[in-house]
Design a protein around this nucleic acid. Sequence first.
DNA 1: CTTACTGTACCGTCTGGACGGTCTTGTCAA
DNA 2: TTGACAAGACCGTCCAGACGGTACAGTAAG
Lengths: 178, 178
Amino acid sequence: MKARRTNSREKILAAAADVARETGPGSLSLDAVASRAGVSKGGLLYNFPTKAKLMQALVEDYLSAFQQALEAARTNGVSGESPLAAYIRLSAEHAEESKPSATWIFSAIAEDPDFLTPIKSFRRQVFERLKQETPNLKALLVCYLAIEGLRSMNLFGSDILSADERRLLISTLLEIAE
Amino acid sequence: MKARRTNSREKILAAAADVARETGPGSLSLDAVASRAGVSKGGLLYNFPTKAKLMQALVEDYLSAFQQALEAARTNGVSGESPLAAYIRLSAEHAEESKPSATWIFSAIAEDPDFLTPIKSFRRQVFERLKQETPNLKALLVCYLAIEGLRSMNLFGSDILSADERRLLISTLLEIAE
DNA sequence: CTTACTGTACCGTCTGGACGGTCTTGTCAA
DNA sequence: TTGACAAGACCGTCCAGACGGTACAGTAAG
């Protein structure tokens, strides 16, 4: 990541995420993103020569951000906390954010399902690592899947769980994880 | 559901699901569905006067099929089985099917996110009902979310769980549910 | 005569992308 | 210090193609 004079790139990525969330994943057009980012279409295409590149950047940014947060949570987390517990805690916090954060994934899938492959392989890596670090396979499976369910509900904007229920769920998962 | 001379309607719905799964959710065009269903575009629009109606039908069919299966599992299920256990078992079987079954949901979301509302309210109903029938709230939360996670992984075509792991997960959930 | 289509031709809109032009910034010789 | 100049960052316009949807004439079955 080299230093850049302009921050157009970040502005554009943020704008893309906003547009996808607000006007629906199907309406993620280059024009919409450009005007939202306060950039002309030409400028947008200068930064991301094709729509696919934009999507790709969205995915990569998302993944690397999560990875960094995960690494930080592992090292700076509560002492004596298992890696699985750290994963649960981080994911829960992430799902607690008001913005659904990743609606753009739907746009990417609609554009081309292959955009999922990097995400899938990333997930697989995380899971395999957790599997090596967690003695209790049953606990891992239940917790990992439940977190995946939480992620899914957040992604789809489902709100069938109350805040209390979410808290209870997380604390239960943390119990199971230890 | 009145008796129909023709089965074009079902053929078209199946074709739409197939197209979404095979050529990607973004390529679900009326032309593609028509040719896949072995029907002219005129014929397609005769059955579903607009693309939105097609999506709506897809959603409604999907939901009513699940509801029927759920009702059947409740009454004809293993005797002494709790409603939560029945729900787990049914969802697990459903997720076991080779075809991802519901990729078309992505098309629907891309078309108009509002197509999610009937699905969301259906899920909410199911959850509320389970909540009344299940004494152990913790168990319900963990199991329901884990199933949701399974559903999500199936939807996204993720295969990070081996068949053995899936089986272990389900049996663990069933233990928790009782 | 109605139902359930087929087939074709067509329209308006939207979108990704190409292209040429413009403004800004940094560099370097004189 | 200044002026020429090249590269980087961005603007605005245009266009071909795809898509949803309409219109309509024809037809085979019951």
